[in-house]
Amino acid sequence: MSRSAAPQTDWTPDQPIIALKDVRKSFGHLEVLKGIDLHVMKGEVICIIGPSGSGKSTLIRTINGLTPVTAGSVKVEGQEVHDDKLDKLALRRKIGIVFQQYNLFPHRTVLQNVMMAPVLVLHENKREVEERARSLLAKVQLSGKEDAYPAQLSGGQQQRVAIARSLCMRPDVMLFDEVTAALDPEMVKEVLVTIKELAAEGMTCVLVTHEMGFAREVCDRVYFTDAGLIVESGPPKQVFGDPQDARTKEFLSKVL
């Protein structure tokens, strides 16, 4: 295996694997994130909930550096993400992300989609990668679809391919950005089941989601965001059962 040596930091596994400190992000004059503090421990499943336009997607995208921050610090395993000297490849290998719109590569088959990154980016042995890809596809219930093209699959199937594609890089953390928002209701479940299995295996997961039932059942901790700020956080029992802030109460009364 060609995993590169871990970058030199004084990070130890008992510290947060992801730590955001006073993260701010502006698009022009519009301030979307107004000072976010958030941390995730290894093996935790974190849900970020909140009204549309509260900056949830921007927040999750700052974690793997897709959206650069205006100020503040984002650390993954003790490494500052928004550092020009950072080895982006090492970061991206550690963090997998799944998008709302699946974003599969339309000109490659399902199997090729899953295999592409480990082969091209990590230069891993093709046969080993294929073996792993097939078993991952089996895990997300897509055996037999290896040679299909993305456009021939349903939304739920495409989303599961996207999950397998990220997992094939063997990340330490998985980010899920509203992965069920574009799906028909009957397909939401099959995707959530996949994520639930991942969580049960101990994968560190950060989800932006509107699925409150899922958040309540699977999450270790919930962050509630509104207007670019974290308003409230805690175990789901507490946030859903006994919300403290008026904005949380109002939001929950609307969606539950």
């Binding site: 793997n64 897709l66 982006k88 490849l89 991206r92 290998r93 963090i95 997998g96 992300i97 998008f99 719109q101 974003n103 599969l104 590569f105 339309p106 592409m116 990154a117 980016v121 990590l122 996207a162 594609r165 990220s166 890089m169």
Partner: peptide, 10 residues
């Protein structure tokens, strides 16, 4: 979004 997905994969 498609190129972004590739970027996320390194």
């Amino acid at each position: 979004t498609t190129t972004e997905a590739a970027e996320s994969l390194g």
